[in-house]
Design a binder for these strands. Sequence first.
DNA 1: ACCTGTCTATCTATCAGTAGATAGACAAGA
DNA 2: TCTTGTCTATCTACTGATAGATAGACAGGT
Lengths: 167, 167
Amino acid sequence: MDTVEKLLDATERRIRQNGYHAVSFRDLADELGIKSASVHYHFRRKEDLGKAVVERYSKRFFEALDNAPDPLAAYCDVFEHALKRDEAICLCGVLGAETRGIPDDVAAEVKRFFEDNLAWLTNHLGDIGNAAMALSSLEGGMMIAQSLDDYSIFDRVRAELLSKAAQ
Amino acid sequence: MDTVEKLLDATERRIRQNGYHAVSFRDLADELGIKSASVHYHFRRKEDLGKAVVERYSKRFFEALDNAPDPLAAYCDVFEHALKRDEAICLCGVLGAETRGIPDDVAAEVKRFFEDNLAWLTNHLGDIGNAAMALSSLEGGMMIAQSLDDYSIFDRVRAELLSKAAQ
DNA sequence: ACCTGTCTATCTATCAGTAGATAGACAAGA
DNA sequence: TCTTGTCTATCTACTGATAGATAGACAGGT
C-alpha cells in the first residue's frame, strides 16, 4: 500500500475517533515511520488532507449502497458497519459537529455528503420526512452510542426505523 | 455578572460552535478583557472548565423541562431553542462526537447527560425505543442542520416525531 | 553504454505561532 | 492582616508550514 493510502487511512481513523483538530502531521508521520515534512509532500496543507479523506469516505459510502435489494436495511447496515467494525462514528458526523471550526472546503465536502445522503434516501424511501428521520437518527444514534460506550441505543434506532417503515 | 459566569458563557458558546479543542485560554481571556493566567485562577485546568460547562448545561437543560404539559413537545422545544436562539448545536452533541479526544471526566459528564436524557424520555414516553429515537434524531438533526446551514431538516425531524407520537 | 535531465519521496533543520500551565508580584477590600 | 482576583513573565511542548538537500528511479538522446 502506498504512502498516500496509508495517510488517508490513518487520518480517517484519527478524525473519526478524536476530531479534526486532534490530528497532527507529526502523529501521522510517526504512525507511518516517516517525517512530518514528508506528509506535507503528499498533502501540502492540512485541509488538503481533510478534503481528500472526506471525498474518499463519501465515495466508498455510496459504493456500498449500490444495488441494494432493501434500501433502508442496506443504509442501516452501512452505518452499523462503520460503528461496529471500525469502532468509530461516521466521519462526517464528527466533522459536522465541528463545522464552524474546520476549513471551509472541508466543511463544504461534509455538507455535500449530507445533501447526497438526503437525496439518496428521499429517492429510495419516497418521502423527505422519512429521509430526514433516517439520516438524523442514525447519525445521532452513533454519536450517543459512542458517548455511552454502549451500542444498544443504535440498535434500538435501527429497529425503530425498520419497524416504522414496514407499517 | 461575575468572571466565572462570563467564562462559562464564553466557553459554552465556543465549544458548541467549534468543538472542545478549538477553545483556548488565550481566546477566552481576550474575549473577557483579562489575561489567560486569570482564567487559570478560576479554572486551574482546561478539563475543570469543560466539566463545569457541561454540568451547568445539563442542569439548565432539565430545569427547562420541568412541569411541561406535553413532554415530547417540550423536549423538542428545548432542542429547537438551543439550535435557533443560540445558533449552535447541543453542547453534548459536539462533545459526544469528540468523546475519545477529550479528558475522561468531561466525557463522563457528557455520558451522564445522555443517560439522564434517555431516562427522562423513557419515563415520559413510556417506551425506550421511542426515547432512543427522539434523542438520536434530535441530536443528529441539529448537527446536520448546522452542516447544511439550513434548519429544515431539524424541522422535519421534529414534525415526524410529533406526528408519529400522535398515532 | 553513458550522460543528462527530471521526477518521486524522503530527509534535516528551522520558522513563527500557540497550547496549557505555573510562579510570584501587586492592589483592593473585608 | 488575610483573602481575592488580577497581573507580568515565563516555561515546555507542540502546531502547521517551509526551505533546502539528497538518494534513487526512470526516460531520451547520443
